[in-house]
């Protein structure tokens, strides 16, 4: 089983939609840690910006 298949299999087997979405964002994890973090942040899975504007956007 290659690397891509392993994560894809997990995605297929999981019933948790958020987990599926996170795996989609992580892709094959070939990006650097910083870039993966940025991707998760862009998709609102995580945030390190505790500002009012952010929360408004978040809502």
């Amino acid at each position: 089983m290659d690397k891509e298949n392993l994560l894809q299999k997990v995605k297929e087997e999981s019933k948790n939609q958020e987990i599926k979405n996170i795996i989609d964002v992580l892709g094959d994890m070939s990006l650097s840690d910083e870039d993966l973090l940025k991707s998760l942040e862009e998709k609102k899975f995580i945030s390190f910006k505790p500002v009012v504007d952010y929360d408004q956007e978040d809502k």
Partner: peptide, 10 residues
């Protein structure tokens, strides 16, 4: 959770 699932699959 994903990590644990990966381990189980492995």
């Amino acid at each position: 959770k994903i990590f644990n699932m990966l381990r189980k699959r492995d």
